[in-house]
Write a protein that binds this DNA or RNA. Structure first.
Length: 642
DNA sequence: TTAGGGTTAG
């Protein structure tokens, strides 16, 4: 090779931006060796893969190259596959044919990766057929990518066939097959392939672990994790994320701490996993610590991390910080970012702001999806924006072509129901093109309960009894309707029915975070030391409220704690009362008490929270199953609307 | 001179 060419290559290896590339290119052309495929290929490689925002230049170069080879096309294809328009990568194969070039295994592998990422099954099948023509489907590299592509698209049988076309699959191919089973949510097949494998490495074990986690088999995952011959960061992350996803929050926190103790590097995956646990638990203080760790680990620029932080702040009741994360994050906001923000604002009752952001998102150029519209409709229903709700419900289908699912219909029923348009909601259900499920009926029952419509509530309960006779919440809602209408005989009859049907009450729990540690209280749970302290305190609080604010406990919702009543236990309290009492005991004056509850807060507890906020001069934030309640100086932001 | 398999957010 000519020494000038060698100089070019060495210079290219060092250059970092488009301008430097252009300078070298000018040098190359001036010296008359632009036709040399090696030098030109290097140029394209640099432009297309290593220098950001210079793909157009790479395309231009290739278009004008007098003697392009397969390598050059492959390089461009790879660059495109990692760009913002990965589908362009598929065109390079057509372009190669036009230039009478024969694609090689790399050409297919890059294109197949794109088909897998975008889940373009049709394109994937076409590529498979073409690979067959060239006899490349048996190639390990191509066969493995084919297996992965079919798995990604959810076609396990095709994946198996592509896998079997390889005569001697290696460990990477076997792992691709295993992953295909995992992607297709078939844990039995994951186990089967795992047993069938002639050799395994840590990746195989990690896929198996992820399989158990995804199938909700926490016990099996835990056992496998303990028995792993060796563990790497992925094993740890899989387990942390798995625990968080399956609701084992305290254990997820514990494992994260253990990971840090091992000295292994915490990365964006472990952090998003543990942040998700934080969001579920409503543990704001721990969330703040994690935010610090995010900065320390240098992963604050990653989109998924920002999304997780945004979601955590919103779900822990700190909307201001959620907004701040959104404003500060790099300009790569995706659909998850916008959904988290809109949903976060919606649960706090900021419906109008949520909708403003929806419009901003449309301008920003992100395509909405079904999940996003659930947040938008939720924002409308929780802020009483009926007209807007209807508008967006129509828009999602007419403008964006998204078919409404049962969740969207549920939001609409909620929208009408909350606003007291009960007949309209009922009519809407009857006109739905899909079969209503228990959630739909329950939503309307809740609205009937809130607006005191006995007749419709009875009808709803009837429907629910046919579909889900064991749900205690439905009995309680109907009972509340009867109680509000002073139909005490019906209340009594319902109570008998409940015990004769052996209806189990969903145990209510509340979590409070005190000095960065979470404490869980369960109504009628074990009487340990902490619960004992909470009991003692709540008795004192209630008597103070009776004296200072004339508090009288509500008897309307008498069925709420039927189990405790049956136990004839005089000291029975809802978990949120215990949590707030414990908060009063342990929280410094002036600090907000934050509670997360798994069920909806009852109206007596709601009243008690209001009174405590005034008498004890403390702000209380309660996240219940439905929304956030901010208690301050005797009032709540939900304005009695929940 | 390009490479294929594992964990993450609504």
């Amino acid at each position: 090779m000519h020494c000038k060419e060698r100089l070019c290559i060495s210079l290219l290896q060092k250059c970092r931006n488009l301008k430097q590339i252009e300078q070298i290119q000018a040098f190359v052309w001036k010296n008359g060796f632009k036709a040399d495929p090696v030098v030109a290929g290097k140029l394209i490689l640099k432009c297309a893969v290593l220098i950001p925002d210079s793909l157009h230049h790479a395309r231009h170069l290739l278009l004008h190259a007098s003697n392009p080879d397969v390598f050059m096309y492959n390089t461009l294809s790879r660059g495109l596959s990692e760009s913002e328009t990965p589908e362009d990568s598929l065109i390079t194969l057509i372009e190669m044919r036009r230039r009478s070039l024969t694609p090689d295994s790399y050409s297919f592998a890059f294109a197949l990766k794109v088909a897998a990422d975008l889940m373009y099954l049709k394109a994937g099948i076409q590529l498979h057929c073409q690979a067959l023509v060239y006899g490349l489907n048996t190639h390990l590299f191509v066969g493995t990518t084919l297996t992965g592509m079919y798995g990604e698209c959810g076609y396990l049988e095709y994946a198996r066939r592509a896998f079997e076309e390889m005569s001697e699959p290696n460990i990477v191919a076997w792992n691709a097959m295993l992953t295909a089973c995992f992607r297709c949510d078939d844990i039995k097949k994951v186990e089967f392939v795992f047993d069938e494998m002639p050799f395994r490495n840590l990746t195989s074990w990690n896929v198996m672990l992820a399989g158990y986690v995804k199938a909700g088999e926490v016990e099996l995952a835990r056992k496998l994790f303990m028995e792993l011959p060796m563990k790497d960061g992925v094993s740890w992350n899989t387990m942390i994320v798995g625990l968080a996803q399956n609701g084992h929050l305290d254990e997820a926190f514990g494992l994260f701490r253990e990971l840090r103790r091992t000295g292994m590097k915490v990365n964006e995956v472990s952090l998003t996993g543990v942040l998700s646990a934080c969001a579920q638990a409503g543990a704001l203080e721990f969330g703040k610590i994690l935010h610090g760790l995010v900065e320390k680990a240098g992963v604050g620029w990653i989109v998924s991390i920002n999304n997780a932080l945004l979601d955590t702040y919103a779900r822990c009741g700190n909307v201001d910080m959620a907004r701040l994360v959104f404003q500060r994050m790099p300009d790569k906001k995706n659909i998850v970012t916008w959904t988290s923000l809109i949903a976060g604002l919606a649960v706090h009752g900021y419906g109008e702001e949520a909708i403003q952001y929806f419009h901003e998102m449309e301008e920003y150029g992100v395509m909405p999806d079904g999940v996003l519209f659930i947040s938008v409709l939720y924002a409308c229903s929780h802020a009483g924006l009926i007209k807007e709700g209807c508008k967006y419900f129509n828009k999602m289908n007419k403008v964006y072509g998204i078919e409404p699912t049962i969740e969207h219909y549920g939001c609409m029923v909620d929208l009408y129901g909350r606003a007291g348009l009960l007949q309209k909601a009922y009519k809407f259900i009857n006109e739905m093109p899909i079969l209503p499920n228990v959630v739909i009926w329950r939503t309307l029952l809740g609205a009937c309960s809130f607006h005191g419509n006995v007749k419709l509530a009875e009808q709803m309960k009837q429907k629910l009894s046919e579909l889900d006779p064991q749900d205690s919440g439905d009995y309680i809602l109907l009972s509340n309707v009867y109680a509000a209408a002073a139909k005490w005989e019906d209340v009594g009859a319902l109570r008998k029915l409940m015990s004769s049907h052996c209806v189990k009450k969903t145990p209510g729990w509340s979590v409070i975070e005190v000095h960065r540690t979470t404490f869980t209280f369960v109504a009628g749970g074990e009487l340990d030391e902490i619960t004992g302290q909470a009991h003692e305190k709540i008795r004192e609080v209630i008597s103070r409220l009776r004296i200072e604010s004339g508090y009288v406990p509500e008897t309307k919702t008498v069925l709420h704690d039927i189990e405790e009543e049956e136990k004839e236990n005089a000291v029975s309290w809802h978990s949120e009362k215990l949590a707030v009492a414990y908060g009063l005991l342990r929280t410094c004056k002036g600090k907000t008490i934050r509670i997360v509850k798994n069920l909806r807060i009852c109206s007596d507890c709601h009243n008690v929270m209001k009174l405590i906020s005034r008498v004890y001069e403390v702000d209380i934030v309660v996240r219940d199953r439905s929304r956030f309640h901010y208690f301050k100086d005797g009032t709540c932001t939900c304005k009695g609307y929940w």
